[in-house]
Simulated scan of single mutants.
Amino acid sequence: MFYGEKLKDLRELHGLSRKELAHKINVSEQALWQYENQYTVPKFEIINEFKKIFFVKPQFFYTDPFIKPVVDIECIAYRADDRDSRKKAKMEITYINFINYFISTFEKVLTSPDHSLHSLRKTIETHIYQNQLETTDFKMTIKQAASLARRHLAITENKELLYKLELSGIYILEKNMGLTIDAYSTWTKNNIPFIILGTTKKSSVRRNFDFAHELGHLLLHRHIDMDSLDNEEHRRIEKEANDFASFFLLPEDDFIQDFNLISKKSNPDSYIELKMKYHVSIAALENRAYKLKLLTYEENRYFYSALNRMKYRVVEPLDADIPIVKPGKIRAMLTIILDNHLLILDNLLEDYSIELPFLESLIGIDDDILKKYIGQTRTDYFADNIVNLF
């Protein structure tokens, strides 16, 4: 039996409309709709075209669907420029459904530490609820939540942020989402948090702010229907996540103490040492200082005038020197599994009728890391292929 829903899942996973995929395989859009809704079965030549485009085996379409929906569109925190793109939203929902399934498959053969971010979120939600009864100053609530999160995650230096986030239970992945999406975050229905980064080239410090911004969404906005927000409401939500990131990365007391050592507050070059310490952009450092009233309005205006004149808006000093840290949790998990023969890669690909490039693209592993595991067999003492030496 041909399962049209699996074809639809693959199409949405790759961000293709029916019209775009129909053009690629030289059929009508109506014909593709009929395949997906199982009114007709595509010819074998068409199946082969799907195989080439999606890196799956022909039998993929003839085996029971295994992907289950674990996230809804209202749970995804997009940046403002991308909120109106339903096509992208479908693509990312399908992506989360796929990656969540395979991560769950990997986790079944490992004993993972408890995901502490879930308990942190519940603590902060309780804290927010209590504060809303006592005060209308939500900005102070965000500040307290950021301080609580920094302590809970045991952040001593911002350069370790990615590692600490992955340790807390967040799955962080990189994928190509176009030029307009920096990152997004979501909780699945089984309370697994994800942060997805775009592959647009950004400096390490700007990515750090993205991490903290998405952490703010995960901790503050779990129960907000992101899909129903109007533009003004969405700007408010984004501002709250930005405030959280600023409070989280630049704790007030420490930051004020360090900032007071700067002699020329309106000179962007005076912030280079702070940038090295906090792994935050020069612009974000000055913005935090200005909101703390450590600069006058005139100093703030002169700072941004100098920032433009020195062409620091896009590229700042140290951007090329501070290394970009890549997510490593899923790569490490899969390496442990395959090195210890807890799963056999060939069996995994066969079970799901997928090809290696499909898995590599899905989990964001490149550089031929997985190729060495092709052809691997079990070598434990209970296998049938152990040769008796005596």
Results as ranks from 00 to 15, higher is better:
8 K>V: 06
13 L>S: 04
17 S>Q: 10
23 H>F: 13
40 T>Q: 08
42 P>W: 03
46 I>N: 06
65 P>G: 14
68 K>E: 15
69 P>I: 03
90 K>W: 07
90 K>S: 04
93 I>Y: 08
95 Y>A: 02
110 L>V: 01
111 T>R: 12
114 D>C: 08
116 S>L: 11
118 H>E: 14
119 S>N: 09
128 I>T: 05
131 N>L: 01
137 D>G: 00
138 F>C: 06
139 K>Y: 15
141 T>N: 04
150 R>V: 03
153 L>Q: 08
162 L>I: 09
166 E>M: 03
170 I>A: 04
171 Y>G: 02
184 Y>T: 01
197 L>Y: 11
199 T>Y: 03
205 V>R: 00
206 R>H: 10
211 F>D: 07
222 R>D: 07
224 I>T: 11
226 M>D: 07
227 D>V: 00
240 E>L: 11
244 F>R: 02
247 F>N: 00
249 L>Q: 07
255 F>S: 06
261 L>V: 10
268 P>T: 04
271 Y>D: 07
273 E>A: 15
276 M>K: 14
287 N>M: 10
294 L>M: 15
299 E>R: 09
301 R>I: 14
301 R>S: 14
304 Y>R: 06
307 L>W: 02
314 V>I: 15
320 A>K: 15
321 D>K: 12
324 I>K: 13
335 T>H: 06
340 N>E: 11
343 L>P: 00
346 D>F: 13
349 L>Q: 01
352 Y>D: 01
354 I>E: 10
360 E>G: 00
363 I>D: 02
367 D>M: 03
371 K>D: 13
373 Y>T: 07
390 F>N: 12
